[in-house]
Write a protein that binds this DNA or RNA. Structure first.
Lengths: 201, 201
DNA sequence: AAGATTACGTACTGATAGGTACAATAAGCG
DNA sequence: CGCTTATTGTACCTATCAGTACGTAATCTT
């Protein structure tokens, strides 16, 4: 049984390229032509490989979460590092990604999610965004609930509140990155907020 | 000299309607058809009255700033109210607008500004957004620099840093509003951050 | 009432959106 | 080599985008 002509492009490289286009233009702003141009393929190849624009977006979003979001989580579980330092390192690591010169500024999810309420993003993609976007908040809350140091500091009794506070700052930071301020300005902001946590009971 | 047929619509009501469409869909997502439908007029009327889509957007954005942003600033200058309480009232007032059921969730400026980096918004409109978006940050920094109570609390020496911190939280809150959480969850976040300011020197 | 002036409604423009039909090309298998 | 299978490029589809031409309707001044 013949197996046909080989693909002339690398599927995961094409997905990476698509991710960058969605990241900089959003779901609505990323046209198929812009996508396929950056991916280095033409439209029929894109449709046969990924399905359609929405399916491409879903694969691209999953790739973003795996390659850009999850790696930062390791900072939260470093052995022999104080809890607040771990949280700070995690946040600084994400901020540093938001301001990275080699990829679009800000957060892919924030950008695309802002289009949700306008009904511009298809339902299935919209649900995925909603779900993925909660990830950091849930992880931080879980950490605060289970970490022994968090209990000593009395942070476990208001874990959801604190997780939401930190998460709100991260989202705000993504907005600030988009608006063009310098990364150095955000660092003391993270310091301030984390220091504020420690001084309450 | 004859003065012609009267307009069959109210110009400022039409602008208000356009503002809500941009607010919920963003600049790119708001199509002329959606705009004129909501405004209750047809396209030639829109073009003769406002110029084009970009000019309408600029007028709509100015209207947003005047009607939705500036009114909150009064909280910052209430007599006989402690500084941190004034700031807290200001922030809660904005958060409450972001979650208001009668208008789109989140912040008009955050939404539209997220499209900037993708080059989807025309230059002139883009510059206006950039400028207006700094307003709250500048106002808070100025307040911290001039207020006598701020000096007593030692907040004047890091006014820019604090203003940026508060502003980042407001932007984050706008994102959270878009993603659908309940307003009550944001209130302790504002509390946390402001309390954190007070406990540092 | 006549004429000038302005707004309105319909119907259109060229460009681009997402998506596809189809013929040509390249690979594996016998 | 010939057959089958899969990918590629071009050229097209319909719908919608921002924007406009033009004839009709309404209001003013004289």
């Amino acid at each position: 049984m013949a197996s046909g002509r080989k693909k002339a492009f690398n599927e995961s490289q094409a997905l990476e390229a698509a991710m960058h286009v969605f990241w900089s233009k959003g779901y609505v702003g990323a046209s198929l032509s812009a996508l396929t141009d950056s991916m280095g393929i033409n439209k029929p190849s894109m449709y046969s490989t990924f399905g359609n624009k929405e399916a491409l977006f879903i694969k691209s979003t999953s790739h973003y979460v795996e390659s850009q979001m999850k790696p930062h989580l390791q900072h939260l579980y470093q052995a022999n590092v104080p809890l607040l330092t771990r949280i700070k390192n995690y946040m600084l690591s994400i901020v540093s990604m938001q301001f990275n010169e080699e990829s679009p500024k800000g957060c892919y999810l924030v950008l695309c999610q802002s289009e949700l309420a306008g009904g511009e993003v298809p339902e299935a993609a919209s649900e995925l965004l909603q779900e993925l976007d909660d990830l950091p908040k849930v992880v931080i809350a879980d950490l605060l609930n289970s970490d022994s140091e968090a209990k000593q500091l009395g942070l476990d009794t208001r874990s959801n509140e604190i997780a939401l506070t930190l998460y709100t700052v991260l989202k705000g930071s993504a907005s600030m990155a988009r608006s063009g301020i310098a990364q150095e300005q955000m660092l003391p902001v993270v310091d301030n907020v984390i220091a504020g946590l420690a001084t309450r009971h």
